[in-house]
Design a protein around this nucleic acid. Structure first.
Length: 318
DNA sequence: CGGCGGTACTG
DNA sequence: CAGTACC
DNA sequence: GCCG
């Protein structure tokens, strides 16, 4: 449990199996496929011959696994906290509510546990994106507000909304935060109209007149006229960091990892704040980042610099 | 066998 | 600092 | 867990 690496291996194998054009009748048919090694092949063999996986039955009936997985689905509760809560004797979400060790964000995640799990139909995300754009341009004309994440990748429903924001000040290619006060104002206005309802994380890092710092807001919002809470993230990037920000927040996570590994192999460091030339770390194991951002005005510039074929957003569901 | 993304929040 | 989050 |  809590074995991140291993579960990610299972996770990567899922789409590989799903994309097979035939029904698996033997483990041999799964030989030489990417992301599937001996262990997974053995599991597949067991399933096709016996119709079940003995290892899994054990887990399904295990009270501890059940409770810890459930707790881990609460926003802000990860494997370590979930286990601690179980060890304290908690078994249900009602038990958690009585625990006063929960942080504010975890309490909020718990309170709206059922709401947050509901997926949002694509057309509603589209309407809310439009709403955000209108409120935004009212505060700051020329602001760019885009919904990234699974929405931008074309999914028909979304688990949450990932909003990426930037602003061009007209002095093309400047890298400054033109209006560092944008996010607080934006958030306030969105609360005034009852769109944003609860905060989870709210941090302002942008420094006026510089290109450093990204402003972030994580919270809960509601579709106009409704009470059902949805997760929403707002991220404000200075224009010269927007491409990497949009790329990262469009994902998916597999693509992000792949691009970052590729970047490292080519002497770069890639994250949501930019593409950097790696610096020689004297003795250190990990390469540092140079100050200068490799000039990427559009997402395609990042792909091009890394020598990775450009993918349209809808092609990024790896 | 060692590596597996990179960053930034909370408490 | 560990833990958690985001894609 | 898988991969180089």
């Amino acid at each position: 449990m809590g074995d991140d690496r291993r579960s990610f291996s299972y996770y990567k194998a899922i789409p590989v199996i799903e994309k097979l054009p035939f029904k698996i009748e033997s483990g041999d048919q799964v030989k030489n496929l990417p992301a599937i090694g001996k262990s997974l092949r053995d599991h597949i063999n067991e399933i096709v011959t016996t119709g079940k996986l003995s290892k899994l039955e054990h887990f399904e009936n295990d009270e501890k696994v059940r409770a810890v997985s459930l707790f881990g689905e609460v926003w802000g509760v990860g494997p370590a906290t979930a286990l601690k809560l179980y060890d304290k004797g908690h078994r249900t979400l009602d038990d958690l509510q009585k625990d006063d060790s929960l942080t504010y964000a975890q309490r909020t995640g718990l309170k709206f546990f059922d709401d947050i799990r509901q997926r949002i139909p694509r057309h509603e995300v589209s309407e809310m994106e439009k709403l955000l754009q209108e409120v935004g341009k009212d505060i700051l004309p020329g602001v760019t507000i885009v919904c990234g994440g699974s929405y931008r990748r074309g999914k028909s429903s979304c688990g949450d909304m990932d909003i990426v924001i930037t602003h061009d000040d007209g002095k093309r290619y400047t890298s400054k935060h033109v209006k560092p006060g944008f996010l607080p104002k934006f958030v306030q206005r969105l609360k005034d109209i009852n769109f944003l309802r609860e905060d989870l994380i709210f941090s302002i890092n942008s420094i006026e007149g510089t290109d450093s710092g990204v402003d972030t807001y994580f919270g809960l919002c509601t579709y106009p006229g409704r009470e059902l809470r949805h997760r929403i993230d707002l991220k404000v990037y200075p224009r010269n960091r927007y491409a990497s920000g949009l790329l990262a927040w469009t994902g998916n996570d597999v693509l992000n990892r792949r691009l970052r590994i590729l970047a490292e192999s080519k002497g770069y460091v890639l994250d949501d704040t930019g593409l950097y030339l790696a610096t020689q770390s004297s003795g250190g194991k990990r390469a540092g980042r140079s100050e200068a951002i490799v000039n990427c005005h559009e997402e395609k510039d990042v792909f091009d610099t890394l020598g990775f074929p450009y993918l349209e957003p809808h092609e990024r569901n790896l």
